[in-house]
Design a binder for these strands. Structure first.
Lengths: 147, 147
DNA sequence: TAAGATAGTTGTATGTCGCAAGCAACTACT
DNA sequence: AGTAGTTGCTTGCGACATACAACTATCTTA
């Protein structure tokens, strides 16, 4: 099952990302893209820096700095947390939302292309197992903070 | 199918890697680990720097520098290419080979743990689809060098 | 044999990330 | 209310990853 490393490596490559994003007319680095993605659709309140760091499994300074960049680019905005003056709520700006939308579309198109010859059944199964594995993995990462 | 990004991200995380390798008693960074893995079992001649760069889909300077580190650590060795004085052949030292073996074992154990509750059938299917996807991806990467 | 290609290295810049340290605000305990 | 401890976020710093450009040595070819 060496495919896992291969895939992780490949999907993470700067080159690939560059190509994909450029094709979509988006100028955004990988970490920025991940962050944007985590800002989407979680119903209630916009998340805080800490919450984002946890979702991404990185530390807060990393998120802080990435947010500063994204803010400069006008893709995210921060508001004060009512009830805790230390905290900020992070949300997508309209521009951020549209960038994210284009990003998602581009990724999907790329995936569709890669899964070109696959049967509908294989695709579905793959998606299901991938999702299951991802959530297991996320659990694992979250669960072992205090190791 | 956002699981793909999640997985790529997770598997690539310094944190995770650190933990995994430390548990296995290995002191090696991610890129080093990837490089070692590509040095294994390809029958004939040991590969050259260029070949490694291609396999890893990174450029040659990256490989050169990583090799210098691995060489200092005594994990790889280089010999002159007979027939081309510019080129070098890169091979694992015994120590490199044993490090790699431990690495592979550690990864497998980690995977087994993650796939804990999975049926045998799901595991097999997942491995198969993952492999298929990985090789498609590799093709894609190789095929688009000259974009 | 000179022109161009190729193998590898070094120089330099950007991005990703962690740990340590710090400040401001919050919470709890007395 | 005051002090101690905790939490949310930021800044300082360093390590790693990787790209592009420029260079040297060697090989290939017309």
């Amino acid at each position: 099952m060496g495919g896992l490393s291969t895939i992780a490596q490949a999907v993470h490559q700067p080159r690939l990302h560059e190509r994909l994003l450029r094709a979509a007319g988006i100028r955004l680095d990988r970490a920025g893209a991940s962050l944007l993605a985590k800002l989407d659709g979680h119903g209630a309140e916009p998340p805080r820096v800490t919450a984002l760091a946890e979702r991404l499994s990185v530390d807060t300074p990393t998120v802080t700095r990435k947010l500063q960049q994204l803010e400069r680019l006008g893709l995210v905005a921060r508001s004060d947390d009512p009830g805790d003056k230390r905290a900020h709520r992070i949300r997508l700006t309209p521009r951020g939302r549209s960038t994210l939308a284009r990003l998602v579309t581009a990724r999907r198109a790329w995936l569709d292309q890669l899964l070109g010859g696959w049967s509908e059944e294989d695709r579905t199964t793959f998606a299901r197992l991938l999702e299951r594995f991802a959530s297991r993995l996320t659990e694992e990462l979250d669960g072992s903070h205090g190791d």
